[in-house]
Design a protein around this nucleic acid. Structure first.
Lengths: 195, 195
DNA sequence: AGGTGTCAATCTACTAGTTGGTCGGCTGGG
DNA sequence: CCCAGCCGACCAACTAGTAGATTGACACCT
């Protein structure tokens, strides 16, 4: 099911993900990747024929990792509020530590008019996956009476997702990793029924 | 005060802004600009010595335009809720019509680690300007009893701003301009006291 | 056990095209 | 005369991508 990648290919994909998070599709080159992996430039073409192939593989991996991560999160937490908080806390740590300081799909969404179409399709699918998960969390929270919102769960989920991705932009613009956490907490509080 | 630009320089800046909105700093070249303005590539260097100069000028212009736009909006509307709605409606139309389908500062914020430092500084200033304006609107709305929120006005403003920029990403990713409007309305509703 | 074919992985050397940027000269209007 | 505006020609560096040769590990057959 999940496309198996050789160890080297995995290494290349991981470094590409970092470069992608830093500067987007047009912000890195094969030379950048080859320098980081300590490998010749043509060797990268051996593993991933074209740049589009490489980035596509990275995005596909990111979708899998996200799907697995959310599933694991669902197993650890029953409570909808705890799930939502765990999700934003995960990103807060990524941003604070500097490991993946930004979601690559948010990055590619911004560039989406200037990116190969099949990559844009994967990015759209990621946004739909994430929205779907948020819908289940929000609906469950509405059922337990922890969340209250007026619109459909779908639009409410899109709003929350937008806030998370926007908070990544804000944290970057202000060069202040902590603001992501503050913004996320506020967004969750807005959904929560006052205790 | 505002850096006067010659007609040609203005034309160049306007086209650059479009290209910037489409693909970000690394997503366009001098050749792209020269093709659109129907002018030689070196002529652009005559008006803006380097790419950094060009983009810096475009961002500075965008800051001015935003400042003027928000001031005009403040004059037209007294009501805080009306101001907030007018602000998101403005962007909703830009996105729907295709004129500036995305805020260039949101774009550059994403790329900010890979962009010349003085441009990143301007982008940060834009985010601070916008936050400051939102703070005044939110505080006024809190005073009139139209808005209710639990955190500080500053964090609440950052949250709203993040939601707007994130909604631009979502609209792009889903390739659905209408979703921006739906998300914005939801965000405003979350702030509003139920009537 | 020894030879042989296959194949992934890597390299050096190269391509054609693009990048941001420079230089010197041509124009037309004040 | 001067000077802003513009252009053709050029540059070094970089872009994604290719060609061809060299490794070394594994499998298969005798």
């Amino acid at each position: 099911m999940s496309t198996e990648l050789s160890p080297r290919a995995t290494e290349i994909a991981d470094h590409t993900k970092q470069l992608l998070a830093a500067g987007g599709y047009h912000g890195f080159s094969y030379a950048d990747v080859s320098k980081r992996v300590h490998i010749g430039k043509p060797s990268i073409h051996h593993h991933f024929p074209s740049k589009a192939d490489l980035v596509l593989a990275v995005v596909a991996r990111h979708r899998e990792q996200t799907r697995d991560g959310l599933a694991a999160l669902d197993q650890h937490f029953e409570d909808p509020l705890a799930r939502l908080t765990a999700y934003t806390d995960y990103w807060a740590e990524c941003i604070r530590e500097g490991t993946s300081p930004m979601c690559i799909c948010a990055m590619l969404a911004a560039e989406s008019p200037m990116v190969p179409a099949d990559i844009a399709d994967q990015v759209r699918a990621y946004f739909q996956d994430l929205t779907a998960w948020l819908v289940t969390v929000l609906e469950r929270g509405q059922a337990t009476g922890q969340f209250r919102f007026s619109g459909t769960a779908s639009v409410e989920a899109q709003t929350f997702m937008s806030m998370v991705h926007g908070a990544m932009l804000t944290a970057r613009a202000l060069n202040d990793a902590e603001s992501f956490q503050a913004i996320s907490r506020t967004a969750i509080r807005q959904l929560s029924v006052p205790t």
